[in-house]
C-alpha cells in the first residue's frame, strides 16, 4: 500500500515513485519516448501527480501535462510546438493534448506556432497557477498528508468519466460513491467532522 507522503522526482524516474502524491519538476523537455512512457504510467496510476514546470517548454512537456492532476508554473513558463515537432504529432498525441487544451487554441499552436504564456495557460485552464517551487513543495506536502481512500477513487473515476456520456459517468460515480461507504475512511471522516476534530485517514 502507498504511504500517504510526497515523493519528488522527474519524468524519467517516475516509475520509481513511492508515496501517494508525486511532485515532478520539469526544467528541460524530456524525450518524446520518455513522455509517452510517462503518459501511460500516469494514465493508470492512482497517485496524485503534480507537475511543476519552468521555462519555455514544447511538445514533450505538453504531452506530460495531459494525464497529470495538477500543474503549477514558474512565472517564466511558456508553451509552444515547434515546426519540427508537428511531424511527431499522431492521433494519440492529439487526443492527449485536446484532453486539456481547448481545440481552437491547440489548432492555433499547431498551425501558427502560437506561444502560450504561463499566465494565459492559467487563464485557459491548462495549468492551475503560477508560483515558486518552494511554495508548491510546502503546499503539496501539507495537502498530501492524511489523504483519504476517496481521493484515489476520485482520480480514477475522473479520468474514466472524461470519455463517457453523462448518464454513464453518473453511473460510474454512483458506484464509486456507494463504494466509499464500505471504507473505514468514510466512518473516520464523518465521525471527525461531527466531533470537530482532524480526521486520521488510513487510505482504505
Amino acid at each position: 500500500m502507498d504511504k500517504n507522503e510526497l515523493w519528488c522526482g522527474t519524468v524519467e524516474n517516475f516509475d520509481n515513485c513511492s508515496g501517494s502524491v508525486a511532485l515532478i519538476k520539469i526544467e528541460n523537455d524530456p524525450d518524446v519516448s520518455e513522455a509517452e512512457k510517462f503518459i501511460s504510467l500516469t494514465g493508470t496510476s492512482l497517485k496524485t501527480v503534480v507537475l511543476y514546470i519552468k521555462g519555455k517548454r514544447s511538445l514533450p512537456t505538453l504531452l506530460c501535462m495531459g494525464k497529470v492532476d495538477l500543474i503549477y508554473l514558474d512565472e517564466n513558463a511558456e508553451f509552444f510546438i515547434t515546426q519540427n515537432q508537428i511531424d511527431d504529432i499522431n492521433i494519440r498525441f492529439l487526443s492527449v493534448l485536446s484532453s486539456f487544451i481547448n481545440r481552437y487554441i491547440l489548432t492555433d499552436m499547431i498551425y501558427t506556432g502560437r506561444i502560450i504564456s504561463g499566465y494565459d495557460a492559467v487563464k485557459l485552464g491548462i495549468a492551475n497557477s503560477i508560483t515558486c517551487y518552494p511554495n508548491i513543495v510546502n503546499r503539496i506536502k501539507k495537502q498530501s498528508e492524511n489523504l483519504p481512500f476517496a481521493l484515489k477513487l476520485l482520480k480514477k473515476i475522473s479520468s474514466i468519466n472524461n470519455s463517457l456520456s453523462e448518464a454513464d459517468a453518473r453511473f460510474v460515480e454512483r458506484m464509486a460513491f456507494a463504494f466509499t461507504f464500505c471504507s473505514s475512511d468514510q466512518k473516520e471522516g464523518m465521525s471527525a467532522f461531527l466531533e470537530k476534530r482532524r480526521p486520521e485517514f488510513k487510505g482504505k
Binding site: 476517496a150 476520485l154 454512483r174 464509486a176 460513491f177
Partner: peptide, 8 residues
Amino acid sequence: ANIGILTG
C-alpha cells in the same frame, strides 16, 4: 474528500 467520501 475531507469526510472520506467523494461527490455522488
